[in-house]
Design a protein around this nucleic acid. Structure first.
Lengths: 346, 346
DNA sequence: CTGAAAGCGCTTACAG
DNA sequence: CTGAAAGCGCTTACAG
């Protein structure tokens, strides 16, 4: 009912002032006579008038829109990240447009110009590879963009990431500490910083504890459930099975569990398992997966904060970086390991 | 580098034509001399010029933006739904702004005007209660909105929902068919159509099979994991425990499993369990949850289709409704039930 | 086939 | 304290 396509001029007529004055009232400009202000406000309230953001945005050369690109919003890790972004953005008066690239770089490359064309004020990009030409170009051009979760190889840009190297180191060390040495890893593609760094942390942890690194125990591929499934099948068919698997994401771990169940093996009795991300799946008592918490909600929130600082700061070379530290979440999926080791020794 | 804030007028100058002509070329208006078109296009390409959508949208009185409000994007059901919306929207040249209400009606009521103020062309609303004053007002005002998943009590508006009544009926009947009669239900709040209808389907199935409905076996509350957990604890402490639990969402079922594990009981040996939604959690082999698939991706996709049809159709009272049919996904979480029943009888 | 002009709904110096 | 005017970047009748 109330929808009549009122404009600032209609209000002006009703209040017997110029539309300039109405605009001032709406923007809380102090230099308007109190009486006039009242009169205008009354009409605004009575009519339920809301200024059209398109006009304002065009005038102000901004959109109050943030674009966010993630691999897939269905991945619980990114959903949580997105929620952190959304909440912070909303709180700051911004709305956010989400785009999923489906891990297909082409799609990421399509979305980027699209979001820009669309006129977002800035972009939060969560799915870059180590080299991502379009993103690098935007950075060079001083376009407001902050990378989250995944890093580029190059430096000097805004990002908030997690210390994947340390996270992987810590969780691998945990397996070693409780008695494992035959530890396999399933991780993401080598051209993505997160999986790259996790593999590095895994290797270093083994090395620091004098455990040889076996290429048979390392499988890389896309960050999808199916990889966890296929890799595990491969591991389980090897002459020398690993005692423990480090799935570099809880999502991969889901696939691992699928395979383990099919083989009618038990976790952790027959095979220990650890994940990465601490999703709700991991915390379910039936799954009970030892994992690493990244604090992705916070990550999203911080990213928005940085982006908005960048908007405010006049310097287009505003740079701010944050690296989050890992938290090890110990659960039952590798809980019996010490016992196993002792059995072996005994 | 390429970012110079070019406008249509800059291009016009370079090409020695009026900005009107540039606009025509950009909009593929046929009445431009081929030679002129070439000249303009060349400059457009060379400079990498992209028309500013704000100007275009202001002129065209549209935004090419769809607003979507969901309870929580972290809930896998809504993530999937959102993905359906996003993909279809993108395909049709629209972007979508997501907002989570956190099941707090106040927040839903805040978002609605906010999205409108923001100037979206229409809204896809996935979290309404049976009565939702603001939404009903929008509908009455002929604002382009389509409800998905949840319905209002009133009629005559665009929606695409799932047949929750039948879904619940089918899965309850399945439990009965394989031998259960002591069946409890944990469902969402009574003021939401989905939980309302699921409860109805459950009751009807029992009734049709001559099984008495016990109020001790019915627990309603918010659609969160914790409810599943608490309700299950309550059921398990009753003198007469149920033999099976129907959790009216997989998310609730997660909580049920948490509780069952704590009680060191086994599913389905000690207690059968079925869910609703067919999320990835349910399909994990370790969880292996019998459930109902709603086809939420499709739901989202269809909703966008309806919204866009509504945009195109000049009639503001364009109405289109879709009701999706349930698919029963049988897994191990209630697989042994017949055996149990036989044991009892024998 | 092309351009000058008006308009989309707002903001903001500039005068008064 | 208030208003006329110009402008944000585009589109689209209206003339020619």
């Amino acid at each position: 009912m109330a929808h009549k396509k009122l404009t600032i001029r209609d209000i002006a007529n009703m209040a017997n002032v110029s539309h300039t004055t109405v605009s001032r009232v709406l923007n809380k400009d102090p230099r308007v006579k109190e009486e006039t202000r009242q009169r205008v406000l009354e009409i605004v309230n009575k009519t339920g008038f809301k200024p059209d953001p398109r006009g304002r945005n065009l005038s102000l050369k901004r959109s109050k829109l943030i674009g966010m690109v993630v691999p897939d919003i269905r991945n619980p890790f990114y959903a949580e990240l997105a929620r952190g972004v959304e909440d912070k953005a909303c709180q700051e008066g911004y709305s956010v447009i989400f785009s999923s690239t489906d891990f297909k770089p082409e799609r990421g490359e399509t979305y980027l110009p699209l979001l820009q064309e669309f006129g977002v004020d800035g972009i939060i990009f969560a799915s870059c590879r180590l080299k991502e030409p379009l993103v690098e170009e935007l950075i060079k051009a001083r376009y407001p963009i902050v990378l989250v979760s995944r890093k580029l190889k190059s430096k000097d840009y805004n990002y908030v990431v997690f210390d994947n190297y340390r996270g992987a180191y810590v969780i691998t060390k945990h397996l070693i500490d409780i008695g494992y040495s035959e530890i396999a890893i399933i991780t993401g593609p080598p051209n993505v910083s997160t999986s790259f760094d996790r593999l590095k942390g895994y290797r270093q942890a083994l090395k620091d504890h004098g455990i040889p690194i076996k290429s048979d125990y390392i499988i890389q591929g896309p960050f999808v459930k199916k990889l966890g499934y296929l890799a595990t099948n491969k591991f389980l068919l090897q002459k020398k099975r690993p005692e423990a698997i480090f799935a570099a994401s809880d999502y991969l771990a889901m696939g691992v569990i699928d395979a383990v169940e099919e083989h009618k093996l038990q976790i952790p009795k027959d095979l220990a398992l650890v994940g990465f991300d601490d999703t709700e799946f991991a915390s379910n008592r039936r799954i009970d997966l030892t994992t690493i918490s990244q604090g992705e909600y916070e990550m999203g929130s911080i990213a928005v904060g940085i982006l908005i600082e960048r908007f405010k700061s006049q310097e287009t070379n505003y740079i701010h970086n944050v690296v989050l530290e890992p938290k090890l979440i110990i659960r039952g999926s590798c809980g019996f390991n010490l016992a196993i080791k002792n059995n072996k020794k005994g």
